[in-house]
């Protein structure tokens, strides 16, 4: 994991140079003379930094622990045709791995061939099957619905099965790391027990006062399709944990319950069949609950299923304040 820090100067330089150029152009408008002296050297330094950090990158690659592997990842064969012989595009998979007992993670680089159909999960499976059987990662449905293969791909939390390899190559490589907000068990596998406990802490189920009647289910609860649409967008959560990983607050304050559970509280809060109503808000009307959210919005950005926890949380904050005011008036 530490080795990825070596890339920081390169990224900083990559970001910095264009910013400097814009500032330079702006400065040219107002103080043309000073602009040359201040910005031209800065830009040169920036470009140099980019070059040097690029060399650091090469250096890190050269010292990665395992030898590079070569393999073909090919889709299933049509009868009489060997697709592995079709030309594939070379690509590298750079995996941050943590082996049990080791204090520091290390990076391993695997060389493969990919096609336009290859997902990052396909690359990982190819490594496991034809290169390095010791690599551990989670996966199951490979169609973006089971929520197993959440990881950090090229620095962004994403599902491996939904990430196309060809479209996401950076310098010919895909970089994968485990999620950072959950404890790591091995390689790309995180321990999600605490995350599941947080999910269960918000009473994430339809609450009915008549529990027996709910279980016996003699006839449907009345509900209009328009009422379903109220909670539907929040019911797509696949419990992958990516929003928790992206949330800056969860990353610094493990007590913050986080975007996933809060979005699920909202899903049931907005269901017209639910009878817990505003009590749901009272449960999370705390600093570790609703008020822990600082509205960075990263959760909504990374959700692979389009759930918008950030909006759910703000809407619940609003309703909480409303109900608190009403209660004060009553009191």
């Amino acid at each position: 994991m530490k080795t990825s820090l070596a890339l920081a100067p390169m990224y900083a330089a990559m970001m910095g140079v264009p910013v400097l150029m814009v500032l330079y152009l702006l400065a040219l408008l107002f103080v043309p003379a000073a602009a040359h002296y201040v910005f031209v050297p800065l830009i040169i330094i920036g470009l140099l930094a980019f070059g040097i950090s690029g060399m650091v990158e090469v250096y890190v690659k050269g010292h990665a622990k395992s030898p590079a592997l070569s393999m073909f990842n090919h889709p299933k064969k049509e009868k009489g045709m060997n697709i592995s012989e079709l030309p594939g595009n070379p690509a590298e998979l750079i995996v941050t791995r943590l082996n049990a007992g080791a204090k520091e993670a290390d990076r391993q680089i695997y060389a493969l061939h990919i096609s336009r159909f290859t997902s990052v999960l396909d690359m990982l499976c190819a490594v496991k099957e034809k290169g390095d059987q010791t690599l551990s990662f989670r996966y199951s449905c490979r169609m973006g619905i089971c929520g197993s293969c959440a990881m950090v791909i090229n620095g962004k939390p994403a599902l491996a099965c939904e990430t196309n390899a060809m479209k996401n190559l950076r310098n010919g490589a895909i970089n994968v790391q485990p999620m950072q907000a959950h404890p790591i068990l091995k390689d790309l596998v995180c321990d999600l027990d605490e995350f599941f406990a947080k999910h269960l802490s918000v009473t994430p189920r339809l609450y009915r006062r008549d529990k027996k009647g709910q279980y016996e289910a003699q006839e449907e609860y009345p509900q209009k399709q328009s009422q379903i649409q109220e909670f539907l967008p929040y019911s797509y959560c696949i419990m992958c944990g990516l929003c928790m990983d992206a949330c800056p607050v969860v990353n610094v304050n493990p007590d913050f319950i986080g975007p996933q559970p809060l979005s699920q509280a909202y899903r049931y809060y907005k269901d017209s069949r639910d009878q817990l109503n505003v009590k749901r808000l009272n449960e999370i009307d705390t600093l570790e609950g609703l008020w822990g959210c600082e509205y960075a919005g990263a959760c909504s950005k990374v959700c692979p299923k389009g759930v918008d926890p950030a909006s759910a949380i703000q809407l619940m904050k609003k309703d909480t304040m409303k109900s608190n005011i009403t209660n004060e008036k009553k009191g």
Binding site: L206, Q214, Y215, A217, Q218, Y221, Q225, I228, Y268
Partner: peptide, 22 residues
């Protein structure tokens, strides 16, 4: 049929008709 109603009671958003039937 009993199972479809049971799942409705657990919260499954079955798509409904105008008259709220499943």
């Amino acid at each position: 049929p009993k199972e479809i109603r049971f799942f409705e009671h657990l919260g499954v958003p079955w798509i409904r008709e105008e008259n709220e039937e499943i």
